[in-house]
């Protein structure tokens, strides 16, 4: 299968003050595929994810060394604007975090701040398309002006996904997007991820190996701040090359 690489990290080291959180990560993420990052908690998978759209910038003590390329451009270059980067790389968080605004305003937030819609109609259209893409439109079309917080947990998370895709990002990062949801809502999100992977590059952090196996094409296993193994999902789960990966997927460490 012919794949192009969307994101590529080179000798990435991340420090929290004195503590080294990630050491020497070299990882390639293919375009329009789902890559899942797995590993025991505290292994650095979320830290890695937050490096990809420079969300770690806001943490005072966090220091990043090395390079991450998105489409041949190093995002840790001095003159790169994180605002532009984050418009290109959307993110969905562990806990659904809709803004305390209406459903419409939540989705329209990105297009509005970035000035993507020239008219009200265009904006309405954009919101509608995004909600449809997130599979939420039919559920909320009658109450688009109600606060986003009035939705159920799973709907809120899909609202956050709709919010992210409203600015047409190239990549969507998902940080354990289902950990706060019930199984039915989780199934819906997983379906959605599958659907979205046709158009977007998706990186998902998950603590559930089953989820990783279900949704992803490529799986990377992190342990103690190092990337232990990366490969096609079915390969990693059926015949891991490393002992540690084996131990993790069989439940010996975790």
């Amino acid at each position: 299968m012919k794949e192009t690489v969307k994101i590529k990290s080179k000798k990435l080291n991340v420090f929290y003050g004195e503590k080294k959180a990630l050491s020497n990560i070299n990882l390639e993420i293919p375009e329009r595929k789902v890559t899942s990052l797995i590993g025991p908690s505290g292994c650095g998978k979320s830290t890695f994810l937050r490096c990809l759209n420079r969300m770690n910038d806001s943490i005072e003590i966090c220091k990043v060394e090395g390079q991450i390329f998105v489409d041949e451009q190093n995002i840790y270059e001095k003159n790169l604007d994180p605002v532009l980067l984050r418009a290109r790389i959307g993110m969905v968080f562990q806990k659904p975090n809709p803004f305390p605004k209406s459903i419409f305003e939540n989705v329209a937030y990105g297009p509005k701040i970035h000035g993507l819609a020239n008219s009200g109609d265009e904006l309405n259209n954009l919101v509608e398309v995004s909600l449809k893409k997130a599979g939420l439109y039919d559920e909320v079309k009658d109450r688009i002006d109600e606060p986003g917080t009035s939705l159920s947990g799973g709907q809120q998370q899909r609202l956050c996904i709709a919010r992210a895709i409203a600015v047409s990002p190239e990549v969507i990062l998902m940080d354990e997007p289902c950990s706060a949801l019930d199984p039915i809502a989780t199934a819906k999100i997983e379906e959605l991820i599958d659907e979205l992977s046709k158009n977007y590059t998706i990186v998902i952090v998950t603590h559930s190996m089953q989820q990783a196996a279900r949704v992803s094409n490529q799986t990377a296993f992190f342990h103690m701040g190092s990337l232990i193994e990366v490969g096609k999902t079915e390969d990693v789960f059926s015949m891991p090359k490393e002992k540690k990966t084996q131990d993790y997927i069989t439940g010996k460490i975790g």
Binding site: T4, D71, A87, H114, G115, V167, S168
Partner: peptide, 16 residues
């Protein structure tokens, strides 16, 4: 490494 091809993406980037 891929080149960004899709239209509305590059259009957005430009706008932003």
């Amino acid at each position: 490494l891929s080149k960004n091809t899709e239209k509305d993406m590059s259009k957005n980037t430009e706008l932003i």
